[in-house]
Design a protein around this nucleic acid. Structure first.
Length: 562
RNA sequence: CGGGGCGUAGCGUAGUCCGGUCAGCGCGCCUGCUUUGGGAGCAGGAGGUCGCAGGUUCGAAUCCUGCCGCCCCGACCA
């Protein structure tokens, strides 16, 4: 493709709205443009890479027996009512104003609809059906460029089995296919066991990549592969020791001291000598949660301990309940249920709030001074703590969900009456799985993992072109003629070539565009070299250059283009 | 939905507090000449309802009211 004739609008500066690297680079390389918040157009260069990804997905899905569909994005609302998911999705689902249709955010119902119509016997199964299609979700807050949009490309697959063992097999096939897909795309990922949440079903796993732009926080152990959402993750952490002798409790004036850090600084004490208080409301009653120092309450753990909904108390409620403002609350004199984190177990000589604004209490002995205190694990783990499985160091970081596989079971088939007859002639609901991949997220995540200060660095499977051919000065006849000749030659050899044949662009301009777009190999035609019959080959990633005779160019490329 | 920020030419921005020589700068774009291995030089040029709608005023990018849009943090999220 000749750049002079193509639409690849590169930019030296990115719009100030773009923050994360993939967003900046996709805009700067002319792969995408934003139409509205969370709604992007793919331009030719970007769409070319999208198709590379979807090709890989097609191959791997077909390899496990998947059959590709294309379902309508426009759905009658009624079918979503049948599984109660209009309510479940709430405002996240787009509704049309002038007809009773919704824009599909996923396709369990539609696939189940087709299965219900045709799959009447256990002999019809197993089946794996999938599609690659645009999905719509009315995200309250689109962000991070293409990573979280209101409209996005998704590969969604559905398995239909007559037995639970069959579902296990279909699920395992998808797990393997997903590994192949992400491996082939050149993405570094890990798998996190997840709760299936509102999707229903018994088991689900998420394929994640580490990224600052991520929306989940996960704990990951490099050495044994343990990975868990921080909401449910555990770690090994040093217990704090009880002092030999307990002091008496005493009140301290601590004007304007609100945080543990301020308290430690003010009293010249260690975090381990403090207990932080958080008040939650559970079933209409206040509960004091005591944490050691700056440890954070893990609300998911707390919620599963207590059962039912919890929420932090509002500032006004705090005063009502404890008599003090946030920052001065503590266990002494607190009249409701008190739960302390395991790390605080039986500690003494602690500092905590006095339940009197601007006062703290020292010398607290939880054994002696706090009646009916309960100890439970409520901590949010942190980077650097030890893995409970292998004892190595855990890392905690943000991650993006690229794929999610679910054992759905019979939730949808039961709700929609999709049944089949088994060997004994009995009607049973079809046993389903569902399996998603965010296709444009794969693209964004690849870029997040493969760029430098100059631009993107493509790897072979997703590269938009094989070779970037740069004619440095097209106004010189020899450069123009030789470059055109080499371009034709490369095309004839079957290479996909991006040819920078612009007459009015300076050499430096072309170099920078080439680094930005990031095609792995550049073939550079300069006036002096070509006069000597020489061309240059440059590797984008390393910057390594090779000056060779043009006669052996094709031979060299055979080794270099993968 | 809560908090914060922003909206001036295709992109990046100055000016807004303190109303009037205030619509400016850089990049990009067009024309010509020069230059040509790391985002060129000179000369000339095009391009703006200052997000939209009201209002105050002799006069509004600037002050007031309402609305719209975008970004960031949070809440939410299969």
């Amino acid at each position: 493709m000749r750049i002079s004739k193509s639409f690849i609008p590169t930019m030296k500066e990115a719009p100030s709205d773009a923050i994360i690297p993939s967003h900046v680079l996709m805009l700067r390389t002319g792969m995408v443009r934003m139409l509205s918040a969370g709604i992007y157009s793919f331009l030719p260069l970007g769409y070319k890479v999208v198709k590379k990804i979807t090709n890989i997905i097609n191959e791997e899905m077909n390899a496990i027996g998947g059959q590709e569909f294309l379902l309508p994005a426009l759905n009658p609302r009624e079918i979503w009512e049948s599984t109660n998911r209009v309510e479940a999705f709430g405002d996240t689902m787009f509704h049309l104003k002038n007809r009773d249709y919704v824009l599909a955010p996923t396709h369990e119902e539609i696939m189940t609809f087709h299965a219900r119509g045709e799959m009447k016997s256990y002999k019809d199964m197993p089946q794996i059906w999938y599609q690659i299609q645009t999905k719509f979700r009315n995200e309250a807050r689109p962000r991070s460029g293409i990573i979280r949009g209101r409209q996005f490309l998704m590969k969604d697959a559905y398995s239909f089995d007559s037995t639970w063992e069959g579902l296990d097999e279909s699920y395992a096939k998808h797990y393997k296919a997903y590994q192949n897909i992400f491996d082939r795309c050149g993405i570094e990922y890990f798998v996190v066991g997840a709760s299936s949440g509102a999707m229903g079903g018994s088991k689900s796993e998420e394929f994640m990549v580490k990224s600052e732009a991520g929306e989940d926080t996960v704990a990951y152990c490099k050495s044994c592969g343990y990975a868990a959402n921080v909401e449910v993750a555990d770690s090994i952490i040093e217990q704090i020791a009880r002092n030999g002798e307990s002091k008496d409790v005493y009140e301290i004036s601590t004007p304007n001291i609100h945080s543990i850090d301020e308290l430690c600084e003010f009293l010249k004490i260690d975090e381990n000598e403090t207990a932080k208080s958080r008040v939650y409301i559970h079933a209409g009653k206040p509960i004091l949660v005591l944490m050691s120092g700056n440890d954070e309450v893990n609300e998911t753990k707390l919620q599963s301990i207590l059962g039912g909904e919890i929420r932090p108390a509002h500032p006004e409620e705090l005063v009502e309940i404890t008599g003090a403002e946030a920052g001065s609350i503590g266990p002494i004199g607190f009249k409701h249920r008190i739960i302390a984190d395991n790390r605080l177990k039986n500690l003494n000589n602690l500092f905590s709030g006095a339940n009197k604004t601007d006062f703290h209490i020292g010398g607290i002995d939880l054994q002696r001074d706090v009646e009916n205190i309960e100890y439970l694990d409520m901590r949010t783990i942190e980077s650097g703590e030890e893995c409970t499985r292998c004892g190595e160091t855990l890392e905690v970081f943000k991650a993006i969900e690229l794929g999610h596989i679910f054992k759905l079971g019979t939730k949808y088939s039961e709700a929609m009456g999709a049944t089949f007859l088994n060997e004994n002639g009995q009607a049973n609901p079809i046993i389903m799985g569902s399996y998603g991949i965010g296709v444009d997220r794969v693209l964004a995540c690849f870029i997040e993992q493969n760029y430098d200060e100059k631009g993107i660095i493509w790897k072979a499977p997703l590269k938009p072109f094989d070779i970037h051919l740069l004619a440095l000065n097209m106004k010189k006849e020899i450069v123009e003629n030789e470059s055109n000749e080499i371009y034709d030659l490369l095309l004839k050899e079957g290479y996909d070539v991006l040819y920078d044949d612009r007459r009015d662009a300076q050499a430096g301009f072309k170099f920078n565009d080439a680094e930005l777009i990031g095609i792995p190999l550049q073939v550079i035609i300069g006036e002096k070299n070509i006069q000597d019959g020489l061309v240059e080959i440059k590797e984008r990633k390393t910057g390594e250059k090779l000056l060779i005779s043009k006669e052996i160019l094709l031979d060299q490329l055979k080794d270099l283009v993968k």
